[in-house]
Each structure stands twice: as structure tokens, then as C-alpha cells.
Design a protein around this nucleic acid. Sequence first.
DNA 1: CAAAGTACTGTGTGATACAAAGTAGTTAGT
DNA 2: ACTAACTACTTTGTATCACACAGTACTTTG
Lengths: 116, 116
Amino acid sequence: MQPEISKETIRGHTTTIVLNILNQGDSYGYAIAKTIKQLSHAAYDINEATLYTVFRRLEKNGDIASYWGSETQGGRRKYYQITPQGQATLDHNIQEWNFAKHVIDDLILGRIDADV
Amino acid sequence: MQPEISKETIRGHTTTIVLNILNQGDSYGYAIAKTIKQLSHAAYDINEATLYTVFRRLEKNGDIASYWGSETQGGRRKYYQITPQGQATLDHNIQEWNFAKHVIDDLILGRIDADV
DNA sequence: CAAAGTACTGTGTGATACAAAGTAGTTAGT
DNA sequence: ACTAACTACTTTGTATCACACAGTACTTTG
């Protein structure tokens, strides 16, 4: 059993991962990083810089919105919230993944048909 | 049914795809591109530049070897052949993919456990 | 009071897939 | 004979994305 997932394989899925987590309730950077580690059974420990890059990308696209938490003294937290558009993106990405899984299976496990 | 697989999802799998095809017999660029299209049921039409980049990368790593075909007049073809090391890489990458599939499923479909 | 943990941000780098363009030979249609 | 489509390989430049590294700042614990 591999302990970690490779960068190149996870690439392209980080936004969907974050959307899935936010779809279950508002959250903030540090907590999301820990949730990712937990959901992946420690196979993926997302880099902080990566995570905040994902936030910026998603917010720019309108898939998430953000607001500062009400922690008055110190320990500021920026909360993220999925938008209706983000939920649509999530649905779309999940379908895309389910499709891609089969295509990649065919491509890396498949035998070449003699007849065309 | 989506017609095409997204670039970001296929990324990182191209070398494994090529290794799988070469593991079934020597072949050359153009033919491999068509095999990829066929195996993916037209979901992935690899760009030529991408394919030749993959060849260079794999040859540099020692996973494949190449030789010019014996077509004496015109229509030159460069054939590629998987090496024993390439077969080991293929096996490794397939295991990695089977592992990654489950991790990504957990990450983009998984529910967050209330208890930690 | 120092160390570890929580929490957010910016800059720069590396890997990779592809678009675009070029070179060159072959085959099929009119 | 000519042109278009197809076969076949290569180079250059670009875009995306994940991350390493570095920095800022507050809190908790020994």
C-alpha cells in the first residue's frame, strides 16, 4: 500500500476536493487541509500554498465566496462558502471524474484490439 | 457521455499509456496516437507534440529504446520498444493508479466523518 | 519564555500537455 | 499533372498547476 499519492495524479483534482468539502459546510484553510488528510487516510497532505492558490482560483471563478470569521481577538480565520455555481461545478467535475476513470483504465490496462 | 477527457485529468498518465501500448509490441508515433484514440473510444486524441515529448522523456529514463524502421524509400518510421526497466515502471504505475483511484474517490465523493 | 501549533500570504520554480508551425514523403481524386 | 488529404517526425513557445520556500502573526503549553 502506497503511503502517498503522486503530485501529477492529484493535479487537476484539488479544486474538486475543496468544493466537495465546502459542499458539506463552510470552512477555512487550516481545517480543510486537515480534512483532506483525514479523507485520504493520510495519502494526501496538501501544501498550504497549493490550498490557498485553489481558494483564489475558485473565488475568482465564482465557485466559492469568502468572509472573515468573527474571532474578535487574534487567530483570524477566512471562511469559504460554496456558491450555487460551485455546486454545479462540483456535480460536473464528479461526472467528469467517473468518466475519466474508465477512460484511463482502458488506456493503461487495455489490450489492443487486433481488428479495427 | 462526455466526448473528451480533460487535459488536467489525463496529465501524468501519458507515459503509462504509452508504456502499456509498447508492452504489447514495438510501435511508432503515428500508430500509437491512433491506438490511443481507439483504446479511449475517441475520448483522448493525444497531441503529436505531447507524444514525442513522452518518447523523449521515456527514452532518456531508459524505459524505452528506439530504432529506425527498415523502410528504405521514404516514409521513415522511428520504432519504440519497451525495456525491462520500462516494464517495471509500467507495473509500478498501474499499481499507483489503482491506489490513486480510491484516494481520489474518497476525496471528491467522501463525506466528512463527524468524529475524528 | 521558548517551542509547537494555528492560520494566512507571496514569490519563484519545475513538470507537463499542447498549440502552432515546419519538413517531407505518399496516396487518391479530378 | 496537380492538388488535397494523409502519413510521419520535430521544434519552439506558452499555459496551468502544485509546491518549495519564506514570511507574518497570534495562541497554547511546558
